[in-house]
Computed example of a mutant assay.
Amino acid sequence: MPSITARFESMTGLDIDGDGVSGEVPPTYTVLSTGYSTFKTVWAASKNYQLVSTATGLAETVATKVVSIAAKTDLAAIDAKLSPAFAKADRSVSPMVENTLKFGEKKVKDLEPVINVVKVVVPVKTATAVSASLYGIFLKNLEKVGQVMLIENPEVTN
């Protein structure tokens, strides 16, 4: 008879005991590992554009120096640890994403009659105009807050 942990792992698909084996197929939503992979791809591609290549090169040089001094390692070693860590974390995150999507789909089905009434009562142009007005009010208030919070250095004279 399997242990309680093994049964729970098979029901949830989570790696409870940390042995790297879970009772489920690979995660459906690989949010973290895909995000990290996309970030690395974009970073590598940014080196080909003259406008940002200097900044990315400088940032990478600084990061390499900081990591070598602070962690006594290099970026490749950190990358080798991060990729599997994100893949392992995806096993925990994927069920949460699935549950959230199922919950959202259920709520949309529950609210479908209300949405249909709103579509009939409030035309799209009216909703767009109202939202544009509210956005304009938000921007004006944001400008006022920025002016109020602007702190000038009294030691600097013009």
Rank of each mutant, 00 (worst) to 15 (best):
V108R: 10
P113L: 09
I115T: 05
D79P: 00
K106W: 05
S133H: 04
V130W: 00
A80W: 07
S46R: 04
A59S: 14
E60A: 07
N141K: 14
L14W: 09
V67R: 04
G136Y: 02
G57L: 06
L75D: 02
T100N: 09
G20E: 01
P26A: 11
D74E: 13
E105H: 03
K144T: 10
N116C: 12
L58N: 08
L51Q: 12
V122K: 06
N141P: 04
M149N: 13
A6K: 02
S33E: 05
P113Q: 10
K140E: 15
A71S: 08
A59D: 12
M96Q: 06
V130R: 00
L75R: 02
N158F: 15
E60V: 02
S33K: 02
Y135N: 06
V62C: 13
S83T: 06
V148N: 06
V130D: 00
A77W: 07
V62A: 15
I78W: 03
F103S: 08
V66A: 15
K106N: 08
V117Y: 07
I151F: 14
I137K: 03
P26K: 09
V148M: 03
T100W: 09
K109Y: 12
T157K: 15
K144D: 14
S46G: 10
T41N: 12
F8N: 01
